[in-house]
Nucleic acid binder design. Sequence first.
DNA 1: CCTGAAATCATTGGCGG
DNA 2: CCGCCAATGATTTCAGG
Lengths: 147, 147
Amino acid sequence: MDRFDKKILAALHENARIRFTELARHVNLSAPAVADRVEKLERAGVIRGYHATIDLGKLGYPIQCLIELTVKHLDYFSVVEQVRGMPEIVECFSVTGTSGLTIKAAVDTMATLQELIARLMQFGDTKTSIVIDVPVAPRIPEIHAED
Amino acid sequence: MDRFDKKILAALHENARIRFTELARHVNLSAPAVADRVEKLERAGVIRGYHATIDLGKLGYPIQCLIELTVKHLDYFSVVEQVRGMPEIVECFSVTGTSGLTIKAAVDTMATLQELIARLMQFGDTKTSIVIDVPVAPRIPEIHAED
DNA sequence: CCTGAAATCATTGGCGG
DNA sequence: CCGCCAATGATTTCAGG
């Protein structure tokens, strides 16, 4: 993990579809060297994947929300399974504290949200917040290179 | 937004670096047709970008947490600016409810987390939850095609 | 890690539905 | 308007050093 890898990761985070030739120009290495480094970063698990970011509003799901679910029963893994089966849920964290699960959901209307919350309430108390804005879009922290 | 676009979006969400030729095979269209559709989806803002997902733990930030910040003052935009300037903060939502901001952070040690929370406390009350697991990694909901 | 050749891919223009 | 085919230029990949 030297300064080259650092630049490569930053560039791939900014634009995952960048070409190796352009990436090579950006870091001052040859294209094969860059391709080799990227493959190593993938196999080391540093790069977990490449994902297109989709505008959920334009897909018909303009309402995004965060739901804190205080799981009440002992069947935690069963709850996780059910949550996985709900397509409105686009991300989910298992967290410390009373909540247990923090869920991110995307829905078309408030009626659907109400119905989703009703389904989640069988697993415990819920606290829902509507997302108004995303002042910081997903980014990576500064990378401390060994070189 | 027909079934072709739907499959294209799903494939690019799964692997943003997929080649047009492979994508074309996957959706049963020609490569130029796929390239054309992708460009249109980009320009329509349906595709917002392509991002490599980095393992923050492997980068030296093994601790991830969600911090609910109940912003107390009226200088909300100033708080957002300051939050943007904190590199440990990797994502931030402006939300309804008492919290105001829900922040996702990645840090190397608990000491750093403590220091981050101390910095955030000047803006309001904080409630921190450590992320134990991610049972549902970011995904897209089912796409309702018009065709 | 670089260079250079071979294979593969992206892109463009022209044609047909 | 939308997609296909064919050709050209660019990129990726693999070999040798």
